[in-house]
Structure formats: C-alpha cells, structure tokens
Amino acid sequence: MQILAHRGIWLSPAEKNSRGALLSALESGFGIETDIRDLDGELVISHDMPGKNALLLKTLLEDYRRIGSTATLALNIKSDGLTLSLDNLLKEYGVSNYFCFDMSVPDMLHYIKQKVITASRISELEPEGILSKETAMIWVDGFNYLPYSIKDLMRWLTRNKSVCLVSPELHGRDPKILWTMLKQLPEALLNCPRLMICTDHPELAREFFK
C-alpha cells in the first residue's frame, strides 16, 4: 500500500502545501496530495484562492525531478480549464506516476479525453456510477462515515482498480477506524501498490502498517 502525505509533512496548518512540507514528504519516500489552481497564466499550488506568492507547480516538479523521486503525485484540481497546461507540464518534467481528481464533472471529461490519468470520486454523497466505471482509479472519501466495506475494497482491487482512500482524520475523525479495518485485507491486497491512503500522519501510518 502506498502512503500519500496530505499536503506534505507539516506540523502546523500554515505549513500545508509549502515547498518544505511537500519536499520533506518526497524525500521521506512518501507520495503527496496537493492542490492545483491557476494564477496569471501559471499553475500554482494552493488549496484556497492563490495569492501572488503562491508556490509554482513547476517548482515542485523541479524538486521532484532533482531528487529523483518516482512517488505518486495526487493532484487535487481546484480550477476548471487546466487540462492541457497540466498535461504539458507533467510531460515536460517526465512525471508519469500521478493522478488528477476532484475537478468538476464536465471538466473531468476533458481529462479523460486527453488521456490524463484521472480518478473518479466515491463517497456517501457520490455513489458508484458511470464515472467510477469509466476511470481506472477511484478516490474514496467519507465525510461523515466510511461508506464502504472490506468486501468493496476487495472487489475494486481484484477488478484491477487503483484505489486511494481518504483517511478519516482529514475530516476530524479517528484514523485507526480505517487503519484497523485495512489490516483485515488479505496480505496480497494490503501490499498491493494500487491501494493508497491519503493521510495527515504519513509517518504514523508507515509505522502502523509496516
């Protein structure tokens, strides 16, 4: 199972999505989840509306290439209309281990058409449907509770889906609820690289699952 550091490795909320937090996660061998927007014709990293000092995505990609990382980049798309610019930038820096998610449904169709690696969403508010069948990857969230079971995870993984699970602490709940449940998976599936978890506590998760 791959562990993705949610907005990097950080101690205070102000450090989230900072260059240092993201680089620290990559250097520690974790994948990362980060947020992509546009500002004045550039792609930037920012969860909220970006300011003039927003971190450029190409700066992160330069760091990624410089340290020789091949970790997974989970790119949370916060603005529509970025498909071509993002695809070109990823190709320019030779990034192939990534996926994009959370864009609007109409915008997602452009990503799929452009053959950009895209994950559809499943949550208690977004049940399995046409889009989750269309994409080879799913981003599985639970805002108030876990809307899936071990049987669901096994079904998705045995059907060759890539699955990224949102750890409950991202919504203020105890992560051990999910983490303990995952240990019920057969060892081959728990160790499958197509299974990922996005967490605020990547180092604790590594220790828990090692």
Rank of each mutant, 00 (worst) to 15 (best):
L4C: 10
L4F: 06
H6K: 09
R7K: 11
R7Y: 02
I9W: 01
W10N: 01
E15V: 08
K16A: 12
N17V: 02
G20E: 13
G20D: 14
L22M: 04
L26S: 06
L26N: 07
E27G: 01
S28Q: 13
G29R: 08
G31M: 12
I32H: 04
I32Q: 04
T34C: 08
T34Q: 02
D35Q: 08
I36R: 01
R37K: 11
R37F: 04
L39M: 10
L39N: 00
D40C: 07
E42Y: 09
S46E: 03
H47S: 06
D48V: 01
P50M: 04
N53R: 13
L55A: 05
L56V: 01
L57P: 02
L61G: 08
Y64T: 05
R65M: 07
I67K: 05
T70I: 11
T72G: 00
A74G: 05
A74C: 10
L75G: 00
I77W: 01
I77E: 03
K78T: 09
K78A: 11
S79M: 14
D80V: 08
D80K: 09
D80G: 15
D80M: 06
T83C: 12
L84K: 14
S85I: 00
S85L: 09
L86I: 07
N88E: 15
L89V: 03
L89D: 02
L90E: 05
E92A: 14
G94C: 06
V95M: 10
S96W: 00
S96D: 12
N97M: 07
Y98Q: 13
D102V: 04
D102M: 02
M103S: 15
S104V: 09
V105S: 13
M108D: 05
L109N: 10
K115N: 14
K115H: 14
K115F: 03
I117V: 12
I117E: 11
T118A: 06
I122V: 14
E124Q: 13
E126C: 10
E128C: 07
I130M: 05
S132F: 00
S132H: 00
K133E: 13
T135K: 02
T135W: 02
M137F: 05
I138Q: 10
I138N: 11
V140A: 12
V140G: 00
F143H: 12
Y145I: 00
L146G: 03
P147V: 06
S149W: 05
I150G: 03
I150R: 11
L157E: 09
L157H: 04
L157I: 06
L157D: 08
T158C: 07
R159K: 14
V163H: 06
L165W: 08
V166W: 00
S167E: 10
H171K: 13
K176Y: 14
I177S: 11
L178Q: 12
W179H: 10
L182P: 12
K183V: 05
P186D: 09
E187I: 06
L189Y: 12
L189S: 07
P193V: 11
L195M: 13
I197E: 13
C198E: 14
T199N: 07
E203G: 00
A205H: 04
E207K: 15
E207G: 01
F209Q: 12
K210G: 08
K210Q: 11
